[in-house]
């Protein structure tokens, strides 16, 4: 699936965050040169250098850090450049529980990022509120997709670093239309049950 306009990868679900804040919109600018091969080269460049923002909210951030360290080495795919400034980042890794008090800041950080930008909701809390989703929940945002247009959801509590890598591959696939790396064979270990489901792609419209 070749997407000519990466800014339009996905729009926020029009759910309201409990009347808290408005959902953010991806800043979409029509490309200056709107030619298919040119856009493909740019998309390829974007897919091969996804710089995440140094930004972790809860325990999923530990898995994010370990994905960038020696064993799982995010650097192999050019994604290890964690930029502390939102202005230089491409990917917002929402790694953890978004409480309602912090939600406006998350949205502001997202809006500070320059245009081709992606959001990866990592872990059950960022996807749906996870264990905090219950009757009478007053403090936790039930899914970051209420305020941000999420491109890829990586389930798990927390997801393993491999799952995060798969999430980044899913963004690459959304950008360029194909997966560049070999699909790992599913491990069938009777001790752990069946292999976990593959990373779900977000809804793209």
């Amino acid at each position: 699936m070749a997407s000519p306009d990466p800014g339009k990868l996905s729009e926020p679900r029009a759910r309201q965050a409990g009347g808290l804040i408005e959902p953010a919109r991806a800043a979409v600018h029509p490309p200056l040169v709107n030619l298919r091969p040119v856009n493909y080269v740019f998309d390829l460049g974007r897919a091969m250098s996804i710089w995440p923002m140094t930004f972790g909210l809860a325990c999923c951030a530990i898995e994010m850090m370990s994905a960038s360290m020696a064993r799982w080495d995010l650097a192999r795919f050019g994604a290890e450049v964690f930029r502390p400034s939102a202005r230089q980042a491409d990917l917002m890794l929402v790694a953890g529980t978004v409480v309602k008090k912090f939600a406006p800041l998350v949205r502001r950080l997202y809006e500070q990022m320059p245009a081709p930008k992606f959001v990866l909701a990592m872990g059950n809390c960022a996807i749906s509120g996870g264990p905090f989703k219950f009757e009478g929940n007053y403090s936790v945002l039930e899914g970051v997709d209420q305020i941000l247009p999420v491109d890829v959801y990586v389930p798990g509590c927390p997801p393993r670093p491999e799952a995060l890598l798969e999430g980044i591959f899913a963004i690459q696939k959304k950008l360029t239309g194909h997966r560049f790396w070999p699909q790992p064979a599913p491990v069938e270990d009777p001790a752990f049950g069946a292999a976990p489901a593959a990373v779900q792609e977000g809804e793209s419209r």
Partner: peptide, 30 residues
């Protein structure tokens, strides 16, 4: 840090910086 570093974009990640430059070139200037 005992990890491979950029590895898959080009042979041993040689094209990594090229991809970065292409991306930065096409990034919005705020």
């Amino acid at each position: 840090q005992r990890r491979p570093g950029p590895y898959v974009v080009g042979p041993h990640g040689l094209l990594q910086t090229v991809a970065d430059s292409v991306k930065l070139l096409a990034k919005q200037i705020v």
